[in-house]
Design a binder for these strands. Sequence first.
DNA 1: CTACCATGTAAAA
DNA 2: TTTACCTGGTAGA
Length: 271
Amino acid sequence: MPEGHTIHRLAADHLAVFGGRPVRASSPQGRFDAGARALDGRVLDGVDAHGKHLFLGFDTPGADWVHIHLGLYGKFGFGEGTAPAPVGAVRLRLAHDDAYADLRGPTACELITQEGKDALHARLGCDPLRDSDDGEKAWGRIRLSRTSVAALLMDQKVVAGVGNVYRAEVLFRNGIDPTRAGRDLDREEWEAIWADLVGLMKEGVRNNRIDTVRPEHTPEAMGRPPRVDDHGGEVYVYRRAGAACLVCGTEVRREELAARNLFWCPACQKN
DNA sequence: CTACCATGTAAAA
DNA sequence: TTTACCTGGTAGA
């Protein structure tokens, strides 16, 4: 269940593992048969990621990119050596003699042209993990919007790549009340949020997990027993409803907002 | 074992 | 706004 950092990491990993040499492509599950046949024997010659969208570029005439969106369930599994017989519904398998990658359960796995890729970029907001992006385009939307900053952060047309974990955590770290309207933020607050997202998400790509707890608030630093969050990283509020805030001890709250769980500390996030 | 939930999005109603 | 997609982990029987 990926946010943007996972996708950027996958892009880099695909290039490192498969780049520059012909790959064998198949769709054991069958739903990407035609696409896999078009890719089979081709060379992966470029990768890209924008928000939660992954693009694998092959030297394939008329079908320049594989566009993959993992959705809520999608997952890649990498393995070394000769690929074993596929287990379960593998939508796409890429392989060479030394490694393989299996894709299961994606929302999207399709061949697209450069034009199609351009259209996707056009409808996505700025991505904290794209070096060419800055937060200005998002600020243009946010500063005029009556929508809550919590909803705006999850809107991929505004900011691309932020999901429920980074949303909750960046608002906590910046002391922002999630219900505040975008237009009630000031520029300094937005710039701090954006800069924090860039830092957190880059660290997420490096570590392949989401960690947001500052050193001074780790259980060790606070004199509390060590804690393991069940999504793989250390966080302040995400999925911690009912537990004590790591900073002030107040009970972390959870509420449904636009069909997604929102987590926050009502004491730390009053600004 | 079954039921339910989840870091997401698009299509249907 | 609701439903569907589609997988894996976990809680509970």
